[in-house]
Design a protein around this nucleic acid. Structure first.
Length: 818
RNA sequence: GCCGGGGUGGUGAAAUCGGUAAACACAGGGGACUUAAAAUCCCCCGCCUGAGAGGGCUUGCGGGUUCGAGUCCCGCCCCCGGCACCA
């Protein structure tokens, strides 16, 4: 390099220069022609952020940087990488904030987006800003609404009155996924139950497929497990119990229960309905109505947090009614109790206190009979039960002709018998519920439905989409459960698209998870206004090659977007049904050993750090501080390591000499290329950076001046972490254009990685007693002989008789003596 | 309770297949260069013991397998994240 290039590393100047050049040259963006004709494509997706007013958080930057590092690595491998970025800007979060500060979200969001965009550029992401999305843009939510219409027409969207989770603070319904231990995910307020008419997507129809496909997709294990648990498949039986009148005769009504242990039906001694169960009125006998109804009202009023507390003592009341156990023919009392949940199974259970812990506790408390129907190998039919025997081996007892059946076969046997006698069937049940997508809020895409008295709910015709969210100044939700839009008559009054009569628009808006359920389909096709996504482009670029994001979305966003993709495939709009080939969850970043929080005062604020050390050093440090998929501890001083490394790299590269490389140094360089090339695709960023540091230390050892051939390969290898610095050095080494435009990643020569001399550890009885350096190809005999002659080793061998010699090539010799 | 992920120096962390535990950094100590500082370079840095050579101990705890275990097996403890009366 020439003399005038020998200046010192100035991160802000270099970063500013390259960010400008990337923009000017379109280095990171793709024209429509490029999108339509790209070969060797790689769709590198990261979870788009909610653009908060506070600006970009280190957690965001950590996630995006890791994804960007991967995208840049793929690009250096010669892939045509598409790395878009957008904004998930609808939803309660924005709306609550807007209410708090008294600014309309339609004014707030654009300024937040602008600020986010600035910050995202500053950290050097290679986002293609010509293909961005903003979920609040009518040009985007037109297609969100179109997707709703597609599901509606396919019979997968249904409006029904259902008990829903109501957050009295946010004044909206919440999906089950948004309720954490009975409290609102956002504000922590205990959630109430309300019955409101809601739109649901029938995701449960896809439960089995969503579960089955988990086996074939390359996802982080933790995420797959979380999805599997969330779907919660269980196998059992649905059994029907006839309700009896006061004379013990069948009334013709039956109560259905779901159980995973139909084989214990002989031990069912009472029945419990959820307080909300529709048959409660019917089975309750006259004298019992006051306490039953009082209990039910109390249960409805009690918030879920209190109600679902596991350690509280069980409560319940007897309805006075009875049903008949179809296995034993005995009458069983019917109770209601809030430990039975309406939303799981059928909302009713057969209680088998002998073999279910909850039923045992309840029966003990209310003095209900407990019958043993399973005997473990140590027990017999009459052994008293001190607690429920719910798992473990055994055989059926007190179960008529099933006595002696092993529990391994009993479920199938009893289910078959129930089916043959017409009172039961095998049944698979899922924990997963249908997806409630209605929100009684303002800040979301209006659900594109028109309610007509004559025609019922009618989809807004495609040509009338989008249904624009009107700007209204009074968008505060209230406790009525009615949406803010229901106060805007001039907006909701319309005519029926089918019959032309006066009709009313749906005034609920949709869940933000619908917005994010398909955004990855939109990015490559943002050039088109007449279609949600272009078929050819979608075929070319999707499914997504790599999706990186946080595990907090393991069961929410990821499940819903898989579902939407499956539906669109079934409707003929896509030819794949899993949206993300590979998904990797990144870890969480903490600061100084503790979770970041304002109260602890350990929140890392990115802007001043970038100001002082540069985006490259910040990126490199974030990737260095721990394994990407596990997260790490951000310690303010730590950035000195990577910062110093980049400095030294700059100095070394800008002073390199054009002469022959040193063989030992060259070997280290080739070893490093080999190692880093292995670690990068596996997201082993921290160890890749460590290897690069080690290599640079070797190049500079003893203050030696680098040879160009030694230092040059480090430039592309550091490029994913420090893209600006790499571009500058690449240019100074005489290259035109961007380092990211070609296949710039170096390749190693295996022959040049081989050491001629190796260190051998010498052990005596497994304890290290010496070390020798030998030629790599020295024979076993010679190595062992050399080992034996080591002074210290010889001393330890002195006393005993040699039994064995273990020789591990190029590694160690272990003498086993007695 | 269930499902994940962890537990290694003062700190963040490394360790392909069971083969020299602590790479790479931060912090700390010492030195060179410098009028000085910064930057840079060199050395030390798990614990105990020893003048040194060396020796003993050490990957949450207790067992086991093995010539050899951070790594494999069995039984525990603790921390983090998620779910939780799911019948």
């Amino acid at each position: 390099m020439s003399n005038e290039d020998r200046d010192s590393y100035d991160p802000s100047a270099v970063e500013e220069k390259w960010q400008r050049l990337w923009d000017e040259r379109g280095t990171n963006s793709h024209t429509l022609e490029e999108i339509e004709s790209a070969e060797n494509t790689f769709y590198n997706l990261m979870m788009f952020p909610y653009p908060s007013a506070e600006g970009l958080h280190v957690g965001n930057i950590y996630a995006f940087t890791g994804a960007d590092v991967h995208g840049r690595y793929q690009r250096l491998q010669g892939k045509t990488v598409f790395e878009p970025m957008g904004f998930d800007a609808f939803g309660i979060h924005s709306e609550n904030f807007a209410l708090k500060v008294g600014t309309h979200p339609m004014d707030l969001i654009p300024s937040n987006v602008k600020n986010f965009t600035r910050q995202l550029r500053r950290i050097g992401l290679m986002s293609d800003w010509t293909h961005s999305v903003d979920t609040t843009d009518p040009a985007y939510y037109k297609w969100t609404q179109w997707i709703f219409v597609q599901l509606f027409k396919a019979g997968l969207a249904e409006r029904k009155e259902a008990p829903v989770n109501w957050c009295p603070s946010c004044m909206t319904v919440l999906a089950n996924e948004q309720v954490i231990s009975g409290a609102c995910e956002r504000c922590g307020t205990p959630v109430e139950q309300r019955r409101i008419a809601q739109w649901f997507f029938k995701i449960t129809k896809y439960a089995q497929r969503l579960l089955d496909n988990l086996e074939q997709i390359d996802w982080s294990e933790t995420t797959r497990k979380a999805q599997g648990n969330w779907i919660g498949r269980s196998e059992g039986a649905q059994l029907r119990f006839p309700v009896l009148d006061e004379h013990g005769e069948d009334t013709g009504t039956e109560v259905e229960v779901y159980t995973t242990r139909p084989d214990t039906v002989f031990g069912a001694t009472y029945m419990v309905l959820s307080p909300e169960h529709p048959l409660v009125d019917e089975v309750t006998e006259d004298g019992h109505q006051p306490p039953v109804f009082a209990y039910r009202d109390e249960a409805t009023r009690t918030d879920l947090i209190a109600r679902q507390k596991v350690d509280k003592t069980k409560t319940g009341v007897f309805t006075g009614g009875h049903c008949r156990n179809p296995a034993t023919g005995q009458a069983m009392p019917i109770w209601i109790a809030d430990y039975v949940l309406m939303e799981y199974g059928t909302g009713a259970i057969m209680a088998v206190p002998g073999h279910d812990g909850r039923d045992f506790e309840f029966a003990t408390q209310f003095d209900l009979p407990i019958v043993r129907v399973v005997a473990s190998p140590d027990d017999d039919a009459d052994t008293p039960l001190e607690s429920a025997y719910d798992v473990g081996p055994g055989t059926l007892v007190n179960s008529a002709h099933f006595d002696g059946t092993d529990v391994s076969e009993s479920v199938a046997a009893v289910t078959d018998w129930a089916r043959d006698n017409g009172w039961g069937d095998a049944r698979v049940n899922y924990r997963l519920h249908d997806w409630c997508i209605s929100r009684q809020r303002y800040w979301g895409p209006p659900i594109p439905i028109i309610h007509c008295d004559a025609c019922g709910p009618v989809a807004v015709p495609d040509e009338d989409l989008p249904v624009i969210l009107p700007r209204v100044e009074d968008f505060k939700p209230d406790d009525s459960g009615i949406s803010p839009l229901a106060r805007v008559a001039e907006w909701y009054e319309t005519t029926c698209p089918d019959c032309g009569e006066a009709a009313r628009r749906e005034t609920d808006v949709s869940d933000t998870f619908l917005d994010s359920g398909w955004y990855f389909l939109r990015y490559p096709s943002t050039d088109f206004e007449d279609r949600a996504f272009d078929a050819d482009i979608t075929r070319r670029w999707l499914p997504v090659d790599m999706y990186i994001g946080g595990n907090e979305h393991a069961v929410l966003h990821l499940m819903y977007s898989r579902f939407i993709t499956m539906v669109l495939k079934d409707l003929g709009h896509l030819d794949f049904e899993e949206p993300y080939d590979v998904f990797r969850a990144h870890g969480l970043i903490i600061a100084e050993g503790a979770k970041m929080s304002k109260s602890k005062g350990n929140v890392v604020i990115p802007d001043p750090i970038i100001e002082e050390f540069g985006a490259d050093a910040f990126r490199a440090y974030l990737m260095f501080l721990g394994p990407y998929e596990e997260g790490g501890d951000y310690q303010a001083q730590g950035i000195q390591g990577p910062f110093g490394f980049l400095h030294r790299l700059w100095d070394t590269a800008t002073t390199a000499e054009d002469s022959e490389p040193d063989v030992d140094v060259e070997r280290k360089v080739h070893q490093t290329i080999k190692q880093v090339s292995q670690q990068m695709p596996a997201l082993g960023f921290n160890t890749a950076i460590a290897a690069l540091m080690e290599c640079l230390n070797t190049i500079r050892a003893g203050g030696r001046t680098a040879k160009r051939a030694e230092i040059e390969p480090l430039v592309p290898m550091v490029a994913p972490f420090a893209p600006h610095l790499a571009e500058e050095l690449w240019q100074r080494f005489g290259n035109d254009g961007s380092i990211f435009d070609g296949k710039s990643w170096p390749t190693h020569d295996e022959a040049k990685t081989v050491e001629s001399v190796v260190e051998i550890a010498i052990q005596v009885n497994g304890k290290l007693r010496g070390q020798i350096s030998v030629a790599r190809d020295m024979s076993e005999e010679d190595v062992v002989a050399a080992a034996r002659s080591d002074e210290n080793v010889a001393r330890h061998l002195g006393g005993g008789e040699e039994r064995r010699v273990i020789y591990v090539k190029e590694r160690l010799v272990n003498f086993v003596i007695t």
